[in-house]
Design a protein around this nucleic acid. Structure first.
Lengths: 192, 192
DNA sequence: GTCTATATCTAGATAGAC
DNA sequence: GTCTATCTAGATATAGAC
């Protein structure tokens, strides 16, 4: 029985993982169950033994993808300003813009989650909360963490919809510059 | 012939307008041609006399929606800091989060445009460029304008996917605060 | 130009053999 | 648990009457 369960877990993990990549690239709504199954090397009949519906799979994907992002920023050394700046620049890189399947789920999937059911929003909220904690450890301030997150997610999403690479770069570098300024803001009460 | 053309123009405008509201709320992909036609008070057969395909309608909607947003910020008095702050706060309001059909198209439609064809991206790029010009007139700085746009679009999009209103508010107020700080940054070269 | 009716295709989900 | 085959619903797009 142990082998069976192990294999089942592996198959499920592959569905979530490969499905997440597919959804980040094409959108969840544009990912048919046949596509998602094929990405994991199985068929739809098999997929439905792991998830009761497409919505259930979506929730599992949201949870896994957001955890992945949270772990990434949890691994950055908060005491090293260079590492923090590099994390900012990496997020706002053209390679992140060009490879949504390898990147953060927030710029690609968030609007679909906003239109999904409460289970999806619940999973989203928990995942984003964890990301926010990790980012706040890097910025040293909760509000600045929210601002940098919103800024970066918005910038990558907008850049992906721009046609010219020149304009993508203009946007990304402007936002990166502003992000550095936000990070350098002294959050102690100012004297007049 | 003049009457005929006038009516035709009106019908087309209504398709674009009502369709835009529907798409901002449900997503363009989730808006069937029957839905979009019904929102304008016609049927699909009639719709196809105005647009050759769903993609063509999408391009028209993107152009119209982005122009609407650009006009909105073009009407704000750049010389009045209170008006600028109010525009920022209005964008980051809970009512904007709760009513996507009445609001800015960027937080709802951008990822779909990122996956669409070049015609859609071209229309998007032109519209966003115009918005950026209007916002830069308010911020007084091109880079800060990009940053505030990315921040606000990202914040509204993220807030819409959060389940609890409390967390929505936390995010919105944090980003509004950071936006005010970005607006107050002195962009002249600093002396050490 | 607008309607009704429909052709054609693809999606999510299920049945049943192995 | 995985496969093949299929049901059913809904999508885009078109045809033809008025």
């Amino acid at each position: 029985m142990r082998y069976t369960n192990e294999y089942k877990e592996q198959a499920r993990a592959k569905l979530v993982d490969a499905g997440g990549r597919h959804a980040k690239k094409h959108g969840f709504i544009n990912s048919g169950m046949a596509d998602l199954a094929e990405a994991a090397g199985v068929t739809t009949g098999s997929l439905y033994k792991h998830f009761n519906s497409k919505s259930d799979l979506f929730v599992a994907m949201i949870t896994a993808e957001l955890k992945r992002t949270a772990d990434m920023y949890g691994a950055v050394d908060a005491a090293d300003p260079v590492a923090v700046s590099r994390a900012l620049a990496d997020y706002l890189s053209t390679s992140h813009v060009q490879r949504p399947d390898k990147g953060c789920p927030l710029p690609s999937l968030t609007p679909e989650i906003g239109r999904a059911d409460d289970a999806a929003k619940q999973a989203f909220e928990e995942g984003v909360k964890t990301i926010h904690v990790k980012v706040a450890a890097l910025t040293g301030n909760s509000d600045i963490a929210w601002a940098v997150m919103a800024q970066n997610v918005g910038a990558v999403m907008l850049a992906r919809a721009l046609r010219s690479e020149a304009m993508q770069r203009e946007l990304l570098s402007a936002v990166c510059h502003a992000g550095e300024q936000l990070l350098s803001i002294d959050t102690r009460p100012q004297e007049k």
